[in-house]
Design a protein around this nucleic acid. Structure first.
Length: 561
RNA sequence: CGGGGUGUAGCGCAGCCCGGUUAGCGCGCUUCGUUCGGGACGAAGAGGUCGGGAGUUCGAAUCUCCCCACCCCGACCA
């Protein structure tokens, strides 16, 4: 591809709307342009990369027996009503204004619709159906460039099986294919066990990439591979100290002491000698949650321990329930249910609020003073704590969800009556699995993991071109003639070549564009080296440069660095 | 949806608080000349509904009100 005839609008300046590195670089390298919030146009080189990603996905899906479909984006609303998902998706679902259609945010319904009446016998099963297509979701707040858009490319696959044993097989195939896909794309990722959520499925795993731009928080152990969403992650942390001698509770005047940190500073004690109280409303009744020191209540864990509706109490409610404001609340003489985090188990000589403003209590012995106290895992795992599985250090960070695999079960087949007959002529609902990959997210994550101060650093197989050929001064006829020959030779040898043949652009400009665009190898043709029959090749990743003889260039490029 | 911010030439910004020539600057763009290995130099040019609407005023980019778009934080994310 000749740059002189191509639309590759590179930018020297950083666009204001972009914040994260991948977004900035995609725009600066002329790969993508925004049309509206969460809606992007892929420019020629960007789309070339998208196609390479889709090709890899397609190959691996075909390798496990997947069959590619092309489903409509416009769906009759009626089908979505039958599964209750018009309501479930709510405002996320785009509605067409002048006809009863919706824009599909995913395709379970359509897969089930086509399976119905066509996959009628156990002999027709199993099937793996997939598509790589545009999906539409009316995201309330698109962000992070193409990572969360309102219109995006997704590969989604669906397995159709006669039973759950078959589903297990299809699920395992996808798990393996996904690992191959992400490995081939050169991504550093990890797999997180996720809860089955409201979908009624039995198992689900997410493929995540560590990134500050991520929307999920996960805990990950590099050593043993333990990984979990922060909402459910567990860790090993220091419990409350158990002193051999328990003091009696005593009141301390603590004017203007609100936080645990202030309390520790005021009394010159350690955080682990304190118990923090948080009040929640559980199905309309107050409950006190006691945490060790500054530990944060994990509201997801709290929710699953308690069941029902849980919310934190409003400031006005606190006074009414406890007689004190936040900062002075404690478990002693609290009139309602109290639960505590496991780390506090049997702690003694603890300090906590006195349920009287500006007073705290010392000498609390939980076993003695609160004999009916129940203990649960209620805390949020923190960075640097120990892995629950292997004991090495746990890292907590933000991550981007690249893909997920999900055992759906019979939710959709039952809602839409998608049944088959077994060997005995007995009718059963088809068992489904659903498996998604965000195509643009692979793109963005690759850049997040492969860039430097000059630009993107591509590598095979996603690199849009193998070689960036730079003719430094194309007005020099020797340079121009040599470049033309190299360009033809490289292409006929099977390389994909981006040829900077612009004759009105200075050398420095071309070098910087080449570094920004980030092809793995640059071939630089200039007068000086050419005089001696040489050209220069450069390794984009390391910056290493070599001057080589023109007549040995083709051999050298077999193994350039 | 709550909070914060921005909107002035293709891009990045100044001007606005304190209203008053012809709305500036850098980059980019056009033409000519020079230059040609790390974002060149000179000269001459083109390019603007100052996000939109209404209002105040002799006069609005600037003040007031309404609306829209975009960005960030949060909520949300089967």
């Amino acid at each position: 591809m000749r740059l002189s005839k191509s639309f590759v609008p590179t930018l020297k300046e950083v666009p204001t709307e972009a914040v994260i590195p991948s977004h900035i670089l995609m725009i600066r390298a002329g790969l993508v342009r925004q049309l509206s919030a969460g809606i992007y146009s892929w420019l020629p080189i960007g789309y070339k990369i998208i196609r390479k990603i889709m090709d890899i996905i397609r190959e691996e899906m075909n390798a496990i027996g997947g069959q590619e479909f092309h489903f409509p984006a416009l769906n009759p609303k009626e089908i979505w009503e039958q599964t209750g998902r018009v309501e479930a998706f709510g405002d996320i679902l785009f509605h067409i204004k002048n006809r009863e259609y919706v824009l599909a945010p995913t395709h379970e319904e359509i897969v089930a619709y086509h399976a119905k009446g066509s996959l009628v016998s156990y002999k027709d099963l199993p099937q793996i159906w997939y598509q790589i297509q545009t999906k539409f979701r009316n995201e309330p707040r698109p962000r992070s460039g193409v990572i969360r858009g309102r219109q995006f490319l997704m590969k989604d696959a669906y397995t159709l099986d006669r039973d759950f044993a078959g589903l297990d097989v299809g699920y395992a195939l996808h798990e393996k294919a996904y690992k191959t896909i992400f490995n081939r794309c050169g991504l550093k990722y990890f797999v997180v066990g996720a809860s089955s959520g409201a979908m009624g499925g039995s198992k689900s795993e997410e493929f995540m990439v560590k990134s500050d731009a991520g929307e999920d928080t996960v805990a990950h152990c590099e050593k043993c591979g333990y990984a979990a969403n922060a909402e459910v992650a567990q860790s090993v942390a220091e419990p409350a100290k158990k002193h051999t001698e328990s003091k009696q509770p005593y009141e301390i005047s603590t004017p203007d002491v609100k936080s645990i940190d202030e309390l520790c500073a005021f009394l010159k004690i350690h955080e682990h000698e304190t118990a923090k109280s948080r009040i929640y409303m559980h199905d309309g009744k107050p409950i006190l949650v006691l945490m060790l020191g500054n530990d944060e209540v994990n509201e997801t864990k709290l929710g699953s321990v308690l069941g029902g509706n849980v919310r934190s109490a409003h400031p006005e409610e606190l006074k009414e329930i406890t007689g004190a404001d936040a900062g002075s609340i404690g478990p002693i003489d609290f009139k309602h249910r109290i639960i505590a985090d496991n780390l506090l188990k049997d702690g003694n000589n603890l300090f906590s609020g006195a349920n009287k403003n500006d007073y705290h209590l010392g000498g609390i012995d939980l076993k003695r003073d609160l004999p009916t106290l129940e203990y649960f895992d209620l805390r949020t795992a923190e960075n640097g704590e120990k892995c629950i599985r292997c004991g090495s250090t746990l890292e907590v960070f933000k991550a981007i969800e690249l893909g997920h695999i999900f055992k759906l079960g019979t939710k959709y087949s039952e809602a839409l009556g998608v049944n088959y007959l077994d060997e005995n002529g007995k009718e059963h609902p088809i068992v489904m699995g659903s498996y998604g990959i965000g195509v643009e997210r692979i793109f963005a994550c690759f850049i997040e993991q492969n860039y430097d101060s000059k630009g993107i650093v591509w590598k095979e197989p996603l690199s849009p071109f193998d070689i960036h050929l730079i003719g430094l001064n194309m007005k020099n006829s020797e340079v121009a003639k040599t470049c033309e020959k190299i360009y033809i030779d490289l292409i006929s040898d099977g390389y994909e070549v981006l040829f900077d043949d612009r004759n009105d652009v200075s050398a420095g400009f071309k070098f910087n564009d080449a570094d920004l665009l980030g092809m793995p190898v640059q071939v630089i043709v200039g007068e000086k080296n050419l005089k001696d029959g040489n050209v220069e090749i450069k390794n984009r990743r390391t910056g290493e440069k070599k001057v080589i003889a023109l007549n040995s260039m083709m051999d050298q490029l077999q193994e350039p660095f």
